[in-house]
Amino acid sequence: MDLLNPYNLQVITFIVLNGILAISIYITLMTGQLSLGHAGFMSIGAYTASILTKQADLPLFAALLLGALAAGLIALLIGAPTLKLHGLYLAIATLGFGEVVRVIMLNMEITNGALGLTGLKSIGNTLYEWQKAIGVSAQSVGVSVMQMKALLTLFFLVLLFAVILFLTLRLNRSRIGRAFEAIKADETAAKAMGLQISYYKMLAFIIGSVLAGFCGGLFAHITTTVTPDDFNYHKVVEILSFAVIGGSEIVWGPLFGALLLTSLPELLRSLAEYKMIMYGAIMVLVMAFRPHGLIAADTFQKLFRRRSKQASAAKKEEF
């Protein structure tokens, strides 16, 4: 039962949470936009949800959704001026945005400054209450209450992750996904084909930000605390490295990156202290040897080719 100890369960939970974050950065990258605002949007989602559960005593899951929505709203506001920027300029502007958010959270009364908010509702507790309400206790499952709560949190996260991943894969194959792909490949061509570039860029930016905001709320209510420094520059680098190291051409890239970068420090405990150095070193190595990331579009090509042949046979029949 060692594997099921609450600590290990929490590590796995964070891997799954980072998986959702990886999808969030993947979606903004789908249109070729390098936004570094994800930590800022996480922060907005985390604080909004936390204040709503703590001060306004809102139900946890409503607060999580409202946190995500708040991040989306801010994305809409800052997207209008910033999405006109390209490449590095967009990266710098969004990085600056994240820093502004951090300073605001640091200085507001309602966010309790540098100390942040503590004693937040925990997802594990809430779910366990529900479980007890339907008459299932931890004892009857054969685990401790702590374990049960950690397990419930993990199941909940896995469920969310599965739904979000499913929707992302659907998005990939949808009309919108095609538009994203075309814009990333060649903006001039996309314009010439009559795509509304600014609309699709904004859409990708907002979806990414909503997901980041959602992750922020989840994070706060798993750890039950939130401080401005949870979403600092290091967090930005961490999220970005999912995509840089894992690859950003297909969704499996950043997901693999998240899995690798979240589990490595746990597997090699001695490395944990040097997390940032490790990220840096891995990044340099990946850049040098696999510039498109560990998992590129052609990594699954063999598999994909077989599938696309079947798909094309099906398509031919349609015509």
């Binding site: 009309r175 095609r178 538009a179 792909e181 075309a182 490949a185 060649d186 001039t188 061509a189 010439a192 084909m193 009559g194 795509l195 579009a297 696309s308 094309s312 398509k315």
Partner: peptide, 17 residues
């Protein structure tokens, strides 16, 4: 300005976006 990673059919479909 062909979309190199899309098939011919997909390129044509994009034209009718």
């Amino acid at each position: 300005a062909i979309l190199g990673k899309m098939t011919v059919l997909e390129n044509l479909e994009m034209g009718a976006f």
